[in-house]
């Protein structure tokens, strides 16, 4: 087993584990923003590791896989922001377990 092969196994294994953790996190976390913590960070690194690991198994696919990876890194936080704003701005969606909420004051002042 070559070094490249071992690296590929480590990458895919870790990536799959992190993707599983993201699924578990989304299932277990109590409110929207905390779900987002698991759903954004873990899926991003999980897909990056997993796709690059598979790229190491099949080097001719690497450019296309890197393109998918780049796209995921760039767009994942953006969709997370959009969802976070939606969750914050809609009173019925907003979680009520926040200990500090600076945004409330700023919004209150603006309106």
């Amino acid at each position: 087993m070559s070094f490249m092969d071992i690296l590929a196994h480590v990458f895919t294994g870790l990536g799959a584990l992190v993707l599983f953790a993201s699924g578990l996190g989304v299932f277990r976390m109590p409110d929207v923003f905390n779900k987002m913590h698991a759903g954004t960070k873990a899926t991003t690194l999980g897909s990056v590791l997993f796709l690059i690991g598979l790229g190491l198994f099949e080097p001719s696919w690497m450019p296309k896989l890197l393109l998918i990876v780049l796209f995921i890194i760039l767009t994942n936080p953006v969709s997370s922001h959009a969802l976070a704003r939606a969750a914050y701005n809609e009173p019925s969606e907003k979680p009520d377990n926040l200990l500090i909420d600076d945004l409330e004051e700023s919004k209150g002042g603006a309106q």
Binding site: T40, G46, S47, I68, S80
Partner: peptide, 12 residues
């Protein structure tokens, strides 16, 4: 949020 996560895992 769950939909977002599901689609990303599906990509993998």
């Amino acid at each position: 949020v769950a939909l977002d996560t599901t689609t990303l895992i599906t990509t993998g």
